[in-house]
Write a protein that binds this DNA or RNA. Structure first.
Lengths: 189, 189
DNA sequence: ATAACAAACTAACAAGTGTTAGTTAAAAAG
DNA sequence: CTTTTTAACTAACACTTGTTAGTTTGTTAT
């Protein structure tokens, strides 16, 4: 019973490096050095560099997918649903911002089935969010603006939260959440 | 008098490739192949791979810097200034979205003086935007919310516009602008 | 004590990297 | 027509890449 197994450690260290320089610019020797071992030793724990990327990205992508499915299926108001989506992004950002950065920047280096699977999940996620907004427009909870603009504005902000948090850790999570709900829902004017 | 000189062509082709796979994943042979020549021939026009990156990024960064300086110095209302910032991002996105993607994703592969210079410009840009928002809060044009949240929400959306335009070309620029102003300033509820 | 395993190591390889040197063919300038 | 310039080429370089093979060492189970 170890506090953290070696494979997980490799994944965490890799995610941090991938965030800083991008998947392609990080070598197996870089990862090994950050763990104080030799590159060849990594292969006692992982199959390939590709596998590291897959393990980092797919798990988080699946979490996003499953949570938004649950939100969409619930019988809450549109406002409440959007608030929960905001909460979801904040939660994952706080818990694992390295992996999130990796998902955002390096997903295109996935290959074959993993790439197809990821793109499918991303499309499904956006489609679920679109359904939430659409029904909000239908029942008057949301303004009747161009739906694509609404979706991309909101998701852009949520998806790149990891870029800001880390620099501005002075803001407490609850305050962040409250302000983001204000800004995204009611605007700044 | 050629319609477009060879060096510019290399920069444009490179920007497109960098956007798709990232700076590190694109080889000189990739760039050459996209132009139907050999990798060595590129060196008749450019000094190094690094130089391509610098030429792509710095020019756009300078444009952002100089325009926002002008906006900040003008005597318009805060709302008008923000609208002009939105316009600025839309303009550059429409004109050169490949370079913009490159600036967003690959700036960390700049080196030495170029890196320092870029980071300085980015900080200055954010500081100028912060000043605009701050004076808007001071005179009551903008709600008194957490200023960092306002800044990062707005800039996140503007900076990643290139990810969405290209997929959703059905939206006309004027419509895009009008809707973005609505969403960013007045919210969606 | 002995066997089995986990996880590190050294050494190496084949492929790919950015880049340089030297050459050639066609176009522009004199 | 001759010279210069432009922009392509081939061939090669030194280095880095992900990865494999085989070995060693300390820990765990029998």
């Amino acid at each position: 019973m170890k506090p953290i197994d070696r494979k997980t450690e490799i994944i965490n260290v890799s995610a941090k490096l991938f965030k800083e320089k991008g998947y392609s610019a990080v070598t197996m020797r870089d990862i090994a050095q950050a763990m104080d071992i030799k590159a060849a030793s990594l292969y006692n724990h992982i199959k390939s560099k590709q596998e590291i990327l897959v393990l980092i990205i797919i798990e988080i992508a699946e979490e996003f997918t499953s949570v938004i499915d649950e939100i969409l299926a619930s019988d809450q108001t549109t406002i409440q649903k959007i608030e929960r989506v905001i909460q979801l992004h904040i939660d994952i950002t706080l818990r694992n911002s390295d992996a999130l950065a990796c998902l955002n920047n390096d997903w295109m280096h996935l290959t074959d089935d993993d790439l197809i699977y990821f793109i499918k999940m991303r499309e499904d996620y956006e489609e679920s969010f679109r359904k939430i907004i659409k029904s909000g427009i239908a029942n008057g909870e949301i303004k009747n603006l161009n739906i694509e603009v609404i979706i991309f504005s909101t998701l852009s902000t949520l998806r790149t939260l990891y870029l800001w948090y880390g620099k501005k850790k002075t803001i407490k999570p609850e305050v962040l959440k409250a302000n983001m709900i204000q800004v995204l829902l009611n605007g700044i004017v």
